[in-house]
């Protein structure tokens, strides 16, 4: 990172001259990311839609990336900047690991991401914000952990579940009613797909499972065995099951009143 800054500072985000124009810049935005922990790991999932104003810019964008073997980042906000930020983040983690011969701690990774988001504050003020969700397996404490961020780089650890992006309020509401702390891996994956379905139900910028085009949410799982992305077959099974049940209950599973 320092080396890159010294040699080719123009490659670093945040070092570009800001455009002098006023008003919002039209660029594709990513939308909803949700995460939930379960005993033995954490799931991180995202929908597939990118929007530019009222237009759907891309319907099969991928917004959840492995950061390294034991962590993943889901991005919401300006897609181009966010993808580049993740690329640089991945590079930094890998570089550190190779040079030092040891992985950064999960806290260390979360702090590093925090600094990178803060570096983008200038762009965020122009309407090009990047707000990721970071999840990983803490090798020392042996549990899955989730970190959420705000545009200024403020970092906070979330217990149980978290969401970010335009559909996050709806996703959080759904997950709040569904979440239990004794989920299995498959139950946790189903819960996040339910939450994304509810977000897509109420937020126009979030895409639901597109059964006709076979575009399903990206669901990733991080356990002590490392990062794993569910295959299309596995996700389609969950997404179809969720979709089937919605024919009977369009609003999804009902929680007990008391």
């Amino acid at each position: 990172m320092d080396f890159l800054g010294e040699h080719s500072p123009d490659l670093l985000p945040g070092n570009r001259p800001l455009p002098p124009i006023q008003g919002a810049i039209e660029a594709p935005h990513g939308t909803t990311i949700v995460a939930a922990t379960f005993p033995g790991g954490v799931v991180l999932a995202g929908d597939r839609r990118a929007t530019m104003g009222n237009v759907i810019a891309q319907r099969d964008i991928e917004k959840v990336f492995p950061a390294d073997e034991y962590s993943a980042v889901g991005i919401a906000g300006t897609a181009g900047l966010a993808v580049e930020m993740v690329k640089l983040f991945q590079l930094e983690l890998e570089h550190f690991e190779k040079v030092e011969g040891a992985q950064l701690s999960l806290e260390g990774k979360a702090n590093r991401l925090s600094t990178m988001i803060r570096g983008n504050l200038g762009m965020a003020m122009q309407g090009l914000a990047v707000v990721p969700l970071f999840a990983g397996w803490d090798v020392d404490r042996e549990k899955g952990r989730i970190f959420s961020y705000d545009v200024t780089g403020g970092r906070s650890e979330e217990h149980g579940f978290a969401s970010t992006g335009s559909g996050s309020v709806f996703a959080r509401g759904a997950l709040k009613k569904l979440y239990r702390d004794d989920f299995t891996e498959n139950q946790a994956a189903t819960a996040v797909v339910q939450a994304l379905y509810d977000a897509a139900d109420d937020d126009s910028a979030t895409g639901g499972p597109d059964l006709a085009r076979r575009i399903y949410p990206i669901v990733t799982v991080i356990t002590d065995e490392g990062f794993k992305k569910l295959t299309e077959a596995e996700i389609s099974e969950i997404a179809r099951a969720v979709h089937e049940r919605r024919f009977e209950q369009p609003d999804g599973p009902r929680a007990a009143l008391l």
């Binding site: 080396f3 890159l4 040699h7 080719s8 490659l11 690329k87 640089l88 590079l91 890998e94 570089h95 190779k98 040079v99």
Partner: peptide
């Protein structure tokens, strides 16, 4: 070695 890692990572990122 560290020089090599830097060279490779910079190449790969660029």
């Amino acid at each position: 070695r560290i020089g090599g890692v830097r060279y490779a990572d910079l190449r790969g990122y660029t």
